[in-house]
Amino acid sequence: MGTCNCKTAWDELHEVIEAYRGQESALIEVLHRAQEIMGYLPRDVQEAVAEGLNVPLNKVYGVVSFYHHFSVEPKGKYQIAVCYGTACYVKGAPAVVSALEEKLGIKAGETTEDGKFSLAAVRCLGACSLAPVMTINQKAYGMMDGDKAVEVLQQYE
């Protein structure tokens, strides 16, 4: 599994792990921080966390795989999230997802080959008045339909 070689990110990760050394119950906190720093949680990051918090590696993997928020795969440079909450669903989120899937040539949950875009259908973002909502790297775009979503995408190409 490929891992970021930048020394600074690893240094930062080790600092976080040191701060919580031996604190088993801080596992989820540390994984949050680790994912912020590294972008995702490949095996070597999980190993470092396991060693630091004195938790078996299988438990770390168990937690990582349990929660949707944690990813063991790198995500795209631009992370597209289409809200699949009820309000967005009722107002046409499925059409937004299929238009984006067609445009990008990937399925929801995947990343384009060039690593530029990843697409996900996510749980309610709580911006129901803007339904259907899509976010790209945290910036929200409201009242989407398939055409509008594809149009927004062009700003990122």
Binding site: G85, R123, C124
Partner: peptide
């Protein structure tokens, strides 16, 4: 942990 999709009062 407001998880009900479409509920946002807690937020």
């Amino acid at each position: 942990d407001e998880g009900d999709p479409g509920a946002f009062m807690d937020r």
